[in-house]
Design a binder for these strands. Structure first.
Length: 460
RNA sequence: GGCGACGUAGCCAAGUGGACUAAGGCGGAGGUCUGCAAAACCUCUAUUCGGCGGUUCGAAUCCGCCCGUCGCCUCCA
C-alpha cells in the first residue's frame, strides 16, 4: 500500500522491513483527564491502518504507551487530593472504556513509563556515555547540536526554530533547543533513583525506551497526532538514533490531522473539549467512525453536532442494507467485485477512506436496488459487512437506552400487536394514533412485508 | 518573525494536467411503492472548483501574485 511518510514528506510504498510483520508504535495519551473526541479520531485512524494492514495479510505488532508520570498528572492529583497513581488508574480505565466502545482494537502491549525505569535510565546513561547528553543542575539534557540532522522530521533547522522561539531557556542548557531526558525531583514529587540523583524521565525518552524494549531498534511505523511531530517525535528520533547508531529509528512516520472544535484546535490547554462519553451519549460508535473517516486522516476536521447527526443517518443506510431481506432468485446475484476493487484501491492509496466509503455507499444502494428486483443479495451483504469491518464498523443499532427502555419493550410490543389488528380491520385512524403516540415517546415504526419493525430514535 | 496546510454545491467531503459533461454522504424538490407513513428505489439539486494573471493543444489540478482560514514553532492525539 501507499502511505504518507512525514519523514520523507511524501507518499511512499509501504512494505514492512521483513516483508510480513509490521512493528507499529503509536503514541498513547497522558491519562489525567477524560478521553476526548480528538483522541478518538486519532486512535480510530490508526485502528483502520492496523485493520487494513492485517487485511493485506501482515501480522501487526502494536505497542501503545501511557505517559503515567508528568507535570500535569502530579498537579491534578495534588488538586484533587489523590495520588498520581489513583488519577492515572481512573483515566486509563476511561480510555479503555471509550476505545472499546468505539470498537478500536486493543494494542498488544501498553507499557507504562513508571514500569520501565531501568531501560529508560540505561538509555539515558548510554547517551551520556556517548556525549550526546550532559547532566546539569540535577537534570540531564540532550545535546541537539551533536545531532547532525536534528530537525529532519519536522523539516526545520535549529536556526529557524530559534528565530521564533518562545521557549524559556533553562540556564543550565548549553543550547536553547536542548531538551530534558531526566528531570531532577523537586520536593514532594514522585521520583526514582538514578545515577544523576532522584528524579523522573523527560517526556520523550520513555517512548524511545519502550519502543525499543518491545519492538527493537527499528520500527516500521511510528504514529501519532500531527501535534507530536515537533518536538516529541523529532526528539525521539534524535535520542534514539544517537543511542543505537541505527538509522532510521522508524521507517515510516504517520501523523493524523487534528480534530478542531469550531475554529480552534481541540486541546487540553484551550479547554474546548468534547469527551467521548458525551459524544457517545448522542451518537452511535459507527456514526462517529463514519464522521472521522469521511475526511482523509491527514486533513484537519471540525467536530460538530450537525456532522455527527448526518453520519448517524448515513450509518442507518448501511445498517438497513444489511438488515433487509436477502432477495430472491430472479436474475443474477449482484456482482460485488467492482465495489471491492474500488474500496481496496482507495484504501491502498494512503488510506483514502472518503473514497472507500463512497464505494460502500454505492454498494449499499445497488444492493437495495438488486434486492427490490428480487435478485440474490446475500453475497453483496456479506461483502458490505466485510469491507465495513476493515473500517471497524459494527453495523449495530445505536445503543437502545437503559433500563427504562428495556422495561418498556413488552408494552410497546403489545401496542404494536393491537395496531396490527386495527390495520387489518382497516381502522387506520386509531392505528395512526398509536403510531404517533409511540413516535412522541421516541419510538419509530416501520411497516414492512415481514411485519412492523420498531426502534428508538437515533437522536440528532 | 520562521515552517507548513488548506479554500470544490445549502453543509460535510473526494478528485491534483485530458473519458471532470466534478465521487460519496447530509439536506432540499419531484416521483414510484404504501391505507397513510417510514424505509428503499428513480429523477433533479456546482456550465463550475477563493480572486486575478500565466504555462499548456488542454488546468479544479502546474507557476506567480492577491484575498481568506487554520496548524506547528510551548503541554497536547
Amino acid at each position: 500500500m501507499k502511505l504518507y511518510n512525514t519523514l520523507a514528506g511524501e507518499v511512499e510504498e509501504f512494505v514492512p522491513s521483513d516483508g510480513q510483520s509490521v512493528k507499529m508504535y503509536i503514541c498513547g495519551v497522558t491519562p489525567y483527564s477524560s478521553t476526548h473526541v480528538g483522541h478518538a479520531l486519532s486512535y480510530v485512524a490508526f485502528d483502520v491502518l492496523r485493520r487494513y494492514l492485517e487485511h493485506l495479510g501482515y501480522t501487526v505488532r502494536h505497542v501503545q504507551n501511557f505517559t503515567d508520570v508528568d507535570d500535569k498528572i502530579i498537579q491534578k492529583a495534588q488538586e484533587e487530593g489523590i495520588t498520581p497513581q489513583e488519577l492515572v488508574d481512573r483515566y486509563v480505565d476511561d480510555f479503555f472504556r471509550c476505545m472499546d466502545a468505539l470498537n478500536v482494537q486493543r494494542a498488544h502491549v501498553y507499557p507504562l513509563a513508571t514500569q520501565e525505569m531501568s531501560p529508560i535510565i540505561e538509555t539515558i546513561q548510554t547517551l551520556v556515555d556517548k556525549d550526546y547528553a550532559y547532566p546539569a543542575g540535577g537534570d540531564v539534557f540532550f545535546r541537539v547540536t551533536k545531532s547532525n540532522d536534528y530537525g529532519k522530521l519536522s523539516h526545520r533547522t535549529l536556526d529557524g526554530m530559534q528565530a521564533g522561539a518562545r521557549v524559556e531557556v533553562d540556564e543550565h542548557k548549553e543550547h536553547p533547543m536542548d531538551f530534558v531526558l531526566w528531570k531532577g525531583a523537586k520536593p514532594g514529587e514522585p521520583s526514582w533513583e538514578s545515577p544523576w540523583g532522584p528524579g523522573r524521565p523527560g517526556w520523550h525518552i520513555e517512548c524511545t525506551s519502550m519502543a525499543m524494549t518491545y519492538l527493537g531498534e527499528t520500527l516500521d511505523i511510528h504514529g501519532g497526532g500531527q501535534d507530536l511531530i515537533f518536538p516529541h517525535h523529532e526528539n525521539e528520533i534524535a535520542q534514539s538514533e544517537a543511542s543505537t547508531d541505527t538509522m532510521p529509528f522508524s521507517r515510516y512516520w504517520v501523523h493524523n490531522g487534528l480534530l478542531q472544535l469550531g475554529e480552534d484546535k481541540m486541546s487540553k490547554s484551550l479547554g474546548n473539549l468534547v469527551s467521548v462519553d458525551q459524544a457517545l451519549e448522542n451518537y452511535s460508535p459507527d456514526s462517529l467512525r463514519l464522521y472521522f473517516l469521511s475526511s482523509h486522516y491527514r486533513s484537519p476536521l471540525s467536530y460538530s453536532d450537525e456532522g455527527c447527526a448526518a453520519m448517524e443517518r448515513s450509518a442507518g443506510r448501511l445498517r438497513h442494507a444489511l438488515a433487509r431481506e436477502t432477495g430472491g432468485k430472479k436474475g443474477d446475484p449482484l456482482d460485488t467485485g467492482p465495489y471491492q476493487e474500488r474500496f481496496l484501491a482507495a484504501m491502498d492509496d494512503d488510506l483514502n477512506t472518503p473514497r472507500a466509503l463512497a464505494a460502500l455507499f454505492d454498494l449499499a444502494r445497488d444492493l437495495n436496488r438488486a434486492g427490490d428486483e428480487g435478485r440474490d443479495v446475500r453475497a453483496a451483504q456479506y461483502s458490505l459487512r466485510r469491507l465495513g469491518g476493515i473500517l471497524g464498523l459494527t453495523f449495530q443499532e445505536p445503543a437502545s437506552g437503559g433500563q427504562d427502555q428495556l422495561a418498556a419493550k413488552p408494552f410497546i410490543e403489545l401496542l404494536l400487536a393491537t395496531r396490527t389488528e386495527l390495520r387489518k380491520a382497516k381502522q387506520y385512524e386509531m392505528a395512526d394514533q398509536i403510531r404517533e403516540g409511540l413516535d412522541q415517546q421516541g419510538v419509530i415504526l416501520e411497516d414492512t412485508a415481514q411485519g412492523t419493525q420498531w426502534q428508538y430514535h437515533p437522536r440528532g
